[in-house]
Nucleic acid binder design. Structure first.
Length: 546
RNA sequence: CGAGGUGUAGCGCAGUUCGGUAGCGCACCUGCUUUGGGAGCAGGGGGUCCCAGGUUCAAAUCCUGGUACCUCGACCA
């Protein structure tokens, strides 16, 4: 807000100061007009009070969804934009969430027989051109290394790329690793005895995205990519489906995000795959987010990289391949599935910190008593495997800590002051519902807290599922279809489709909605395509997507 | 890559119309008082006004060119 002020020219400084103090306007602008009379004109700009600033740190979800998302990422200290175009810095708290994901998934991969390895970041350009469809898909938007040396700028300051240091063959920074990995597998696989080869790698990849969004689409991101080789198509398909199940369980049990398992249409399929399976989650704005993919690659890469094995009959065959991955994008999914206007809400199974203690005291005496009890209780919880943090930071006040940990989504906050101590209880506040209650610190304390954590986990899942159900529709005509998408609460639409890419693209062009997947175990149902009117045997899931 | 917008202290911004001492809030530092939902008062530190060139006695401000970022589209294997 901007105001023009006129002051009587007597003790101006004092008047400006007082005006600002009592109105919340900041003192601003030099006098822009000094009349010959005894009045001076100013512009003043309104500056909100501290309370207002605090209350408005996070943009309301209902006001501007993408700003709300960016605010959560910033205020919960998950990540920030770096000075490198399209690349983010993942901050310690955001990274600790990724580390939790890594640990849980990695254990699952190991349980299902996989081992980790690491392949090069750089891929010779020629590798990418070996698999025809793969080329088509990955030809663009890759970062390419052309030189290997810098030198002092002969014309002045700084460094230049040494023109004499041009690479014979350019190196592409991996957008995904199929090519380098299959080129390696050729040397590792000779016999059916070498199969299956079940390998995963945790890595960074680069895709030179033109438009980036924190976690959802950045030029560089972190992921895991599994690449397996099998002696039969059946076994490879089984592997593809198994990993999809691993992802599904991870999404639903750990992230508390319900997902639809499905198969991609040919149009949405990974370049070079015969079938792409996926899990699709609904965000709070009704848009779909692909939360994981698993590909049955057939023999495409084996043929492109000449990976053959001798079967039991001593005949040479091409191997069958799969690949599957999830990325730091899941952090974006987590935010958009669960968070509210007060910040992040983390599911307890995933949360790096499940319980935070905030001690409250005035005197030194109280401090010692309260802290002693906090650490004692924290120990009990730790022994029960609960991840806890005692926030004994003396430079911050308790109110600050409450707000901060809420922002960061810690599922349970326990606050203890002298009064609680005397009553042998502690105040617990759950992040999902904001409910507070007093919990006894005696018998059953640990059980109560564990129960609370699993209640929260379940509740977050239920809320996300209820949201999805309330925004899942059936449409039988294009008109209905458009009405849903343009309405207040767009979401997933089950509709008949004639199975052609042409129709799929036309619908996308007209509505911006795409086919997210053909659900696995989808009930068969006679119908006609909403666009072409041609016969169809099942409904597929349409939605706008991230 | 198209269309808009923005670059001034760590962050958020005013100041640019009409050229003339570099400002405000938050954050930070020091001290005292405080501490059960983002503390108060007092004092203090911090600037290549995105970059380059031009006009001028004088440029954050005007002119030319560049560059970076943001939002929305297109693209997204």
């Amino acid at each position: 807000m901007r105001l023009r002020l006129v002051f009587y020219n007597d003790n101006l400084y004092h008047k400006r100061k007082m005006f600002c103090k009592y109105t919340g306007f900041s003192e601003i602008s030099t006098p822009f007009f000094v009349s010959k009379s005894i009045y001076t004109h100013f512009f003043c700009t309104f500056v909100p009070s501290k309370q207002e600033i605090m209350a408005n740190t996070i943009t309301k979800r209902s006001e501007n969804y993408s700003e709300w998302y960016n605010d959560i990422v910033a205020k919960a200290e998950l990540a920030e934009n770096s000075d490198v175009r399209g690349c983010m810095v993942i901050r310690p708290y955001g990274y600790s969430i990724w580390e939790r994901m890594q640990r849980i998934l990695d254990d699952k991969f190991k349980e299902t027989g996989h081992v980790n390895a690491y392949f090069p970041l750089f891929i010779p350009k020629s590798f990418l051109s070996k698999e025809a469809e793969h080329v088509e898909g990955f030809a663009k938007e890759c970062a390419v290394v052309t030189h290997y040396r810098l030198k002092a700028n002969p014309e002045g300051k700084g460094l230049i790329v040494d023109p004499d240091a041009k690479l014979e063959e350019e190196l592409v920074i991996r957008p995904t690793s199929e090519t380098i990995i299959w080129n390696t597998y050729r040397n590792w696989i000779q016999s059916y005895r070498d199969l299956p080869l079940l390998i995963n790698q945790w890595a960074n990849v680069v895709r030179w995205e033109l438009r980036t969004r924190m976690f959802l689409r950045t030029a560089e991101f972190l992921w895991q990519e599994g690449h397996t080789a099998h002696s039969s198509a059946e076994e490879a398909v089984a592997e593809t489906k198994q990993m999809l199940d691993v992802y599904t369980e991870f999404a639903e049990k750990t992230l508390a995000i319900p997902v639809i398992k499905g198969v991609k249409t040919p149009n949405e399929r990974f370049a070079g795959a015969l079938d792409t399976y996926c899990i699709e989650a609904m965000m709070q704005d009704g848009k779909a987010l692909q939360a994981g993919t698993s590909h049955f690659l057939g023999q495409n890469f084996a043929k492109a990289f000449d990976v053959k094995f001798a079967n039991k009959e001593n005949q040479m065959e091409y191997v069958w391949a799969t690949s599957w991955g999830v990325s730091t994008r899941l952090i974006g999914a987590l935010i958009m599935a669960h968070s509210d206007d007060d910040g992040l809400r983390l599911p307890p199974v995933l949360a790096p910190v499940q319980v935070v203690f905030v001690p409250i005291y005035k005197t030194e005496e109280e401090k010692k008593a309260v802290l002693d009890k906090c650490y004692e209780l924290a120990d009990q919880l730790k022994k029960a495997g609960i991840r806890i943090k005692v926030d004994a930071d003396e430079t911050k006040r308790s109110g600050w800590k409450f707000a901060e940990w809420e922002m960061k989504g810690v599922p349970v906050r326990l606050a203890m002051g002298p009064r609680d101590l005397a009553n042998q209880q502690i105040e617990s506040a759950r992040r999902d519902t904001k409910e507070k209650s007093s919990v006894s610190t005696g018998e059953g304390f640990v059980e109560n807290i564990s129960q609370l954590l699993s209640d929260i986990q379940q509740n977050l899942f239920n809320q996300a599922k209820a949201l999805r159900e309330s925004r899942t529709y059936k449409a039988d005509t294009m008109e209905e279809f458009k009405q849903i998408l343009e309405g207040e609460n767009p979401g997933f639409i089950y509709a008949h489709w004639d199975g052609t890419t042409e129709t799929e693209l036309k619908i996308k062009e007209e509505t911006a909605a795409t086919i997210r997947c053909i659900p696995i175990g989808n009930p068969l149902e006679e119908g006609v395509c909403i666009y072409s009117g041609k016969p169809s045997t099942q409904r597929v899931v349409f939605a706008k997507a991230y």
